[in-house]
Design a binder for these strands. Structure first.
Lengths: 130, 130
DNA sequence: CCGCATCCGTGGGGATACTG
DNA sequence: CAGTATCCCCACGGATGCGG
């Protein structure tokens, strides 16, 4: 893994960024930070996630050591997912983003409206209509 | 925009998360945080970005009020991009992620190797070969 | 209940060519 | 130099069905 030069492909930072870019991963991390959950609990909790993505994302998180998977050998098997200590440290950073979002949402929206008002004046044909 | 319930689609947090999830946006933000840059400077600086994505991402950032676009009316037109105050506040949060990445990279890699050693023992056909 | 395999549609994003 | 427009591909992710 190369030195921390985010402008080179495949640098450490990019790897993490890609994981954070995964919206499902972040949401799962937030949920598990509060308490452990079972598979279908998560499924119901997270609006719009497919079973495939949930499964897939959980495996990634487990692989990265951010989430722990505990299998209970009951009759219909029971699986519980919980956040690991490492996961909690990432959660802290991610949470900073959440806070930023809530703090500056208004500013962003204002900027967007301004931009749209200024630039979205199309309908001025550059070349004469045919 | 709904209340801060990240589990509902289209919540504020998700919007920001999606923007941060955009790796190009983050990289641009980091570059511009150091100093203003021109279009093709950014292009050269960022390994692997296409001209289309650069253009597209810059417009998003400008629309969100995170980046400022200054046009100099020289003969071959000159355009400079710089980070806004709002952009700097976001940069702070993003930087926390960068730090996390560099700090815990080793842990993640270790976890991954462990996981792979444990689980990637395929080659045991569940059903007989045809 | 948990989760993998398969099929398949959509759109994100790369390459290229062109304009102001 | 700074973009826009077009084509095109393939990987991401949804839906469905099966297996432990």
């Amino acid at each position: 893994m190369p030195a921390p030069d985010p402008f080179n492909r495949k640098c450490a930072t990019r790897v993490v960024l890609d994981r954070v870019g995964d919206k499902w991963a972040v949401l799962i991390l937030i949920l598990l930070h509060d308490e452990a959950h079972r598979f279908n609990e998560l499924r119901r909790r997270i609006d719009g996630i497919s079973q495939k993505m949930l499964s897939q994302t959980l495996r990634s998180l487990e692989r990265d050591g951010l989430v722990h998977r505990h299998v209970e050998a009951t009759v219909p098997v029971t699986v519980e997912y919980s956040i690991t200590p490492l996961g909690k440290t990432l959660y802290a950073a991610v949470d900073a983003l959440r806070v930023w979002a809530e703090t500056h949402l208004k500013d962003v929206e204002t900027a967007q409206k301004r931009y749209d008002r200024t630039n979205e004046k199309p309908a001025r044909p550059l070349r004469k209509a045919a």
